[in-house]
Design a protein around this nucleic acid. Structure first.
Lengths: 102, 102
DNA sequence: TATATATATGCCTTGACAGGCATATGCCGG
DNA sequence: CCGGCATATGCCTGTCAAGGCATATATATA
């Protein structure tokens, strides 16, 4: 559901993880190095992302390699669509106004 | 900041208000009728939206008429942009895969 | 098999926030 | 000026979740 996605993205550290994973997949340890929080905290954060379908995990021996799954973000994009229409409407109205110079 | 916008959108009732305002502006009372929550709660909710720049208020005698401001949502759209590239990349990769039938 | 490495889970505390009720504020008609 | 309508604010409480530490689990290596 879209509520869950928004809740998750509200946390900067989680957005940071998604940003990192957008470039390439990462192990938990690598993410811990980047995130200035404890390893357990990172694992929990990843659990949240995983439950929401925002990341995938791949097992590599004792490591877990996380990667990005964009579907939920595409949902967010869909939610945003009507609003995009709204502000585009505003913009063109403004442009008309300027063009008419009134 | 984008954190604030995500936090706000995480609340369904606040998204509902934005949806309603996308169609047309509304007074507080009208929103109360739609929202199944107390008037004070709605007023606080609107305060939050206003502080975040997501709505504008216009005074009409003893009424306040709220309208949508899309800028913060446009910010969100901007945040989303690189991810859009990501999932489009995935899609075209998949399409190539299917085309090559391998 | 014992130990080290990589990650996950459980328990607990703390802080933030939503919304209820009571009440304050602002504006109207009479 | 007064009572009534429309909205905002203050205070209080319950809920929930983030992250710290300790510990469990799984895999590798010696």
């Amino acid at each position: 559901m879209t509520t869950a996605v928004f809740e998750i993205l509200a946390e900067p550290s989680r957005r940071r993880v998604l940003d990192l994973l957008r470039e390439q997949e990462h192990t938990v340890g690598e993410l811990v190095d980047e995130l200035d929080m404890s390893q357990p905290a990172v694992s929990k954060l990843l659990r949240v992302l995983r439950d929401a379908g925002l990341v995938d995990v791949r097992v590599d021996a004792q490591r877990r390699v996380y990667s990005l799954r964009a579907e939920p973000l595409a949902d967010l994009d869909a939610w945003l669509a009507p609003y995009r229409k709204f502000w585009r409407g505003k913009l063109t109205a403004l442009q008309r106004h300027i063009a008419n110079n009134d």
